[in-house]
Amino acid sequence: MPHAGYLKIVSKSRAACIAAVEIYNRTVVQYREETFAILMVNAWELLLKARIIQENMGKHSRLYEYQYRKKKDGSKSKFKDLKLTRSGSPMTIGLDHCCNIVAGYANNRIDVACIKNLQALVEVRDNATHFINQDIAIRKVVTEVSLGSVKNYVIAIQKWFNVSFSDLNISLIPISFELDQDGIEAVAKKPAVAVSRFLAHMQSMKQEAHAFESEYAFSVRVEFDLIKNKADGAVKATLVRDDADLTLGVDDDRVPAGFTWDYKTLTDRLVERYDNFSQNPLYHKIRKTLEGDKKFCFVRYLDPKKKSSSIKRFYNPNIIQEFDKSYVKRGSTLFDNPQTTAKA
């Protein structure tokens, strides 16, 4: 039987990871890269501590910090006492110590690539108050390291604890489109000393991480190409003005990628997912409200040129997260958040 002690830590770690990604995905939020780094480092530290407890048959003592006693003459004794926090609780080991322990395990361990990625993330966190996110070159590096940390985290939590994020449809961190080429060139020509030092340090860690084969990643690079010719399944991108956002469009008669559920599939999934779900007026009210949001519902007309023609709606599976706010999941587990009971 698994030990509830470390499963609770895994649950808190997972919650921290989800919060980190949700913050990063909110592009209008200020200080989001720095907040992501703080939460993601916390998620990793909790995950590694849970792994250590798991390896030690549920014993938390392996996480505790100890210090040598002092003799009456002030010299160091050979005996150790538990080190306590200001509030009197046992003090636990830090992230670096956790990494060293888990890296030494025979199975389900981390390696150099994963450790270097975490060290880079800690650098982002520690430099947050200085210059992070004020420089285009740094933003690119931070984004790539952040993507790597999420990829590594999902690999580790699935392998170690068989925990999945499929129920949440967790998404990748988006890349910001930097259209100010003059700004990029200026950074390349005259980088600040602090920026140069930071980027050089990141590059050094990246080279160390890439010296060995690994399933983990130091960073993840994402590139976008604007394709002039029309290919099957391609989404058209239109740049409206120099100062405008990148606008994406789809053909009226083509269902966008990701909108894979029809009405029956959506309803069946909700029946399977919730204890208190029924096809009553409340359900239809919630559904119709969400159908007005293009992120969740795509309306396909039988004749795209005639808006009065018959239609069929297709739903993005992410819509289920909105229903989570109103219904209670079946067989709630340790990893499920408490849900609000729906009222008709």
Rank of each mutant, 00 (worst) to 15 (best):
K12S: 15
H130M: 05
T92M: 08
I18G: 01
Y6S: 03
K294P: 12
E223L: 08
K288V: 08
A16Y: 14
G331A: 11
F212G: 01
N276M: 00
K71S: 00
R300F: 08
Y66M: 14
E291Y: 03
V102T: 08
T238Q: 09
R62N: 14
E178P: 02
E55H: 10
S146P: 08
L290S: 02
R14K: 15
A211N: 11
Y105Q: 06
D251P: 03
S166Q: 12
Q134I: 00
C17G: 15
V163A: 06
N316Y: 14
D275E: 12
R269T: 05
R109S: 14
A156E: 04
G148W: 09
V255F: 02
E291P: 00
P304C: 01
N25P: 00
R273M: 06
Y263W: 02
Y274A: 07
V193A: 13
N25W: 00
Y31D: 14
P174F: 11
A106H: 03
R300I: 13
K190N: 15
L179F: 15
C99D: 08
L95S: 08
N25L: 12
D275K: 02
A231I: 09
V124E: 02
I18A: 04
S164H: 05
Y274W: 03
K12P: 01
K306E: 11
T27V: 15
H3G: 04
H3Q: 06
A120K: 11
I155P: 00
I101C: 07
E34Q: 15
R51A: 15
Q119G: 03
A103T: 04
F79V: 03
M205W: 13
D167T: 13
E22G: 10
S310I: 11
A234W: 05
I227G: 00
K306I: 15
L147F: 07
